[in-house]
């Protein structure tokens, strides 16, 4: 049984760009469409979480461990947290409770976790095979996962 091995390189510039903004690392690397889709997915989850649970779901002071996961989104998460603490934390009317708070926190946390995958891929990109090579690699018994 043969195994295919993908070549991996280290790309610090695109990695730092990916930390700065979701998807930017792939844009810097010349994969603008892929970067745009990463941005759509990660920011869709993050903003979706804030839309559902309100700004209260990004709360380092009261929900520290949720914020640890949410911080994977990068400076955007820290900006939202700063906005929450400086402008809205003193207002009890915006506090979200129960399932809505849990779901909103989960959305933003999963955005951070999925963005970590994108950041790792930006720092250490696989050299993606051409489509015809990928079909060969994905054939039975070759060891390629094709996904």
């Amino acid at each position: 049984m043969s195994h295919t091995q993908r070549e991996t390189t280290f790309a610090p510039i695109s990695g730092i760009a990916a930390v700065a903004l979701p998807g930017l690392g792939h844009v810097v690397r010349g994969e603008a469409k892929r970067g745009g889709l990463i941005f759509l997915g990660v920011m869709g989850l993050f903003l979706g979480g804030i839309l559902i649970g309100g700004i209260d779901v990004i709360d380092r002071a009261n929900d520290f461990w949720w914020f640890v996961l949410q911080a994977g989104v990068g400076p955007v998460a820290f900006g939202a947290e700063w906005l929450h603490q400086t402008r809205f934390a003193a207002d009890p009317a915006i506090q979200s409770l129960g399932k809505v708070n849990e779901v909103g926190s989960l959305y933003a946390a999963l955005a951070g976790l999925v963005n970590l995958i994108a950041i790792i891929d930006a720092f250490w990109p696989d050299v993606r095979p051409a489509p015809q090579d990928e079909r060969r690699a994905g054939s039975p018994g070759s060891g390629g996962d094709g996904s």
């Binding site: 759509l40 990660v42 999925v114 963005n115």
Partner: peptide, 21 residues
């Protein structure tokens, strides 16, 4: 909210993992 959650995860994950778009 499970459906848009699953959609968002899928978009971001597949954007990283698929060899071609």
């Amino acid at each position: 909210t499970l459906a848009p959650l699953a959609l968002g995860i899928s978009i971001a994950y597949k954007a990283v993992r698929v060899p071609t778009l």
